[in-house]
Design a protein around this nucleic acid. Structure first.
Length: 673
DNA sequence: AGTCGCAATATTTTT
DNA sequence: TATTGCGACT
């Protein structure tokens, strides 16, 4: 069978598995995606109709890519209806198609910022806990969201999110948690009621409504789960308890095929627990486990580094990647004295990879732990006119100016959308939160939009407010035009608000309108953008050229690869971060896996950058404890070292700035046994 | 009292 | 870059 020919034995076993459920534990670069694709192709050739196969992936982009590749491989009508979704978009569909089952009619989907806005409304200003500490709405959202996704008790979520993952035997933390728990419980209860009253659904509700709805309703479960024969789940290591719970509704009627790498699990902060992969056969009846171990992506020296990184953990990841491709160039460890040097050198190397090796821009990928860390490299790219894209961070739909314009659309679609009113009213000059609240209190009494507009006029509010709404009142089902019409009235104010920035911000609305064009109405459009705020659609993404350097956060780099990879700032207190160290070993391990993900993206060349000062710092912390800095104890033989500029250092030099620090730090400060 | 505008400041990670 | 805090202005 074509399509299976290129698979190795392990991949072939997985792709053609005929039992019920299978968990494939696959190391980095071992052909996860290829195996999923082969699996789907195999099933379709065997006669399973495409529409009875569901592929769940982490982002829309990757799920779309997988489906496209299958289609191009098979090229037949049998593929029709094959769908690739994210958990969220899949659940949204189920809710949309079965409103009665899930008891959801006329809902508005609210996003992260709306959720925070809602908590702000509920808590009021200056909300304090029982110990008189100010509580930010953001942290309540964190706690609540974690509790829902990890399906854990509130106190557990508080421990993880508010008390830096304090150990359970920490009595003062436990006391504080118990003391404040009722307060949090109360606020969260109010929020849940608030949502119910206004028919709001938030991000987590999308999953939870479906998971619980199916669990509680046997008939619905049978009906919906019998639509599929096979569910293929990609990147399963980042699946959280709520998602597993959702999937459990499908154990009986469907075959589950999960693929993931436990060592690449980097979403614990969202409740994911990679250990579930290992317990799969215990949790899921009729299931088996198998492994993919042969790496096709990288050369051996790169994998040696990756292997060393995992082996220096106290946890046994049991990974030892072997390169099919054999030997290659050793990773470079490059020391800089300033971030500017680092950025310049990266771009230098990118340019010479093109000039000397004939590589293209897109063969180069710059990886950073945080979005912020990419800023300098980005600046140098702009300076030298290098084309680039940035992956990660907040999407277009979350940007301020877009939300400003979407707010009136939301009001038109649901005049009782308090959060949208709040945002829209405060946009105008002279209206702050106090006035806005007052106005909203009146307006929520109104019967419909027309009455709202009348009320606004009698309250002698700025005429633009009513004008904007009147302008788009009839465009419920034409969001693209609504954006245009709203903008007509709002533009002067936006100009005033954003000043020079308005020129480039304005451009975003072109893309926005294109996306809106494809949706049937405002509420659909809003729901769509909450699930997919990055606009990972087939639409053109601004003016991004085809061939460009990729700047990405490690979290967004999942599944990506490039010939040359540059890791920014792999310095002390970045890997792991200070915060992770404070959070304890579990967080530190997550950071290690982050670095592992980054390293294993590289096919041919890997450049690891770090602050020269990191070297001195090693002596400072607990005798080369790898949990304080991952590159502690790195065998010299694994890398080639370079120094930028004329910075003068030697590894043995413990004079100068590091001297007094070493004196102060009695090494038994850290007792990590 | 409420809102504005500037300055300071701090940045994990995201469906 | 986006939010927050503070002093000043209406």
């Amino acid at each position: 069978m074509a399509g299976l020919d290129n698979l190795n034995e392990q991949q072939g076993y997985a792709a053609t598995y005929d039992g019920k459920h299978l968990m494939v534990i696959a190391g980095a670069g071992t052909g996860k995606t290829r195996t999923i694709i082969a699996r789907a192709s195999y099933l379709i050739r065997k006669g399973v109709p495409g529409r009875r196969i569901l592929i769940l992936s982490f982002t829309r982009k990757s799920s779309r890519e997988i489906v496209e590749r299958i289609k191009s491989q098979l090229n037949s009508g049998a593929v029709d209806g094959l769908s690739g979704r994210t958990f969220h978009s899949w659940c949204m569909d189920m809710i949309k198609n079965n409103p009665t089952v899930f008891k959801q009619h006329d809902y508005t989907v609210v996003d992260e910022d709306d959720r925070i806005a809602a908590f702000k409304l509920i808590c009021g200003k200056n909300f304090k806990d029982k110990e008189h500490r100010t509580v930010k709405p953001e942290s309540i959202v964190e706690v609540y969201s974690y509790a829902v996704n990890a399906m854990c008790p509130l106190s557990e979520a508080m421990r993880v999110k508010l008390y830096d993952n304090a150990p359970k035997e920490d009595e003062s933390a436990q006391k504080s948690i118990e003391l404040n728990k009722p307060l949090y419980a109360d606020v969260i209860k109010k929020y849940i009621e608030y949502k119910l009253e206004r028919r709001y659904i938030d991000y987590d509700d999308i999953l939870s409504i479906v998971a619980k709805g199916l669990k509680a309703n046997d008939k619905a479960r049978d009906f919906i789960s019998s639509k599929y024969d096979h569910i293929l789940v990609d990147e399963v290591q980042d699946t959280n308890p709520l998602q597993y719970y959702l999937l459990s509704n499908f154990y009986q009627n469907c075959h589950l095929f999960c693929v993931g790498d436990d060592a690449q699990s980097i979403y614990a902060f969202r409740g994911a627990d990679f250990k579930t992969m290992h317990n799969f056969t215990k949790i899921v009846p009729d299931s088996k486990l198998c492994h993919l171990t042969k790496n096709y992506r990288s050369t051996q020296p790169i994998l040696d580094f990756a292997n060393w990184l995992l082996s220096s953990s106290r946890l046994d990841y049991g990974k030892n990647l072997e390169a099919i491709r054999g030997n290659g160039i050793k990773p470079y460890l490059i020391h800089w004295d300033s971030e500017q040097q680092e950025a310049n050198d990266i771009v230098d190397k990118i340019q010479s990879s093109i000039a000397e090796k004939g590589y293209s821009y897109s063969d180069n990928m710059v990886l950073s732990r945080s979005l912020f860390g990419l800023k300098r490299v980005e600046a140098v790219c702009i300076e030298r006119k290098i084309p680039y894209v940035v992956y990660g961070g907040t999407g277009l739909m979350q940007s301020r100016h877009v939300r400003d314009v979407v707010a009136p659309l939301r009001i038109v679609s649901n005049p009782k959308d308090e959060i949208a009113w709040m945002r829209f009213l405060q946009l105008w000059k002279g209206i702050g939160d106090v006035t806005a609240t007052k106005v909203i209190n009146c307006i929520l009494e109104a019967k419909d939009l027309k009455e709202c507009v009348e009320m606004l006029n009698t309250m002698h509010m700025q005429k633009e407010i009513a004008a904007t709404l009147a302008n788009i009142a009839d465009l419920q089902y034409d969001p693209a035009t609504a954006i245009l019409k709203a903008l007509q009235v709002m533009e002067p104010r936006m100009k005033e608000l954003y000043g020079d920035e308005w020129d480039w911000r304005k451009e975003d609305f072109k893309v926005l309108r294109e996306v809106a064009m494809d949706t049937g109405g405002i509420s659909e459009f809003v729901a769509e953008y909450v699930i997919d705020p990055k606009l990972e659609t087939t639409h053109k993404e601004g003016e991004i050229p085809d061939d460009c350097v990729i700047l990405t956060t490690i979290h967004s780099a999942k599944g990506l690869e490039a010939k040359v990879c540059y890791l920014v700032n792999v310095s002390t207190f970045s890997y792991p971060t200070r915060r992770a160290i404070a959070n304890g070993e579990e967080s530190v391990e997550e950071e290690r896996r982050c670095l592992y993900v980054a390293v294993t993206r590289a096919k041919d060349e890997l450049y690891i950058y770090r602050d020269v000062h990191s070297i001195h710092a090693t002596g400072q912390y607990a005798n080369d404890d790898e949990n304080m800095y991952f590159l502690n104890g790195l065998p010299e033989s694994l890398v080639q070292t370079e120094v930028l500029g004329d910075f003068n250092w030697t590894i043995d030099d413990s004079t100068g700035y590091s001297g007094d620090q070493i004196d102060d730090s009695v090494n038994d400060d850290f007792d990590f046994t």
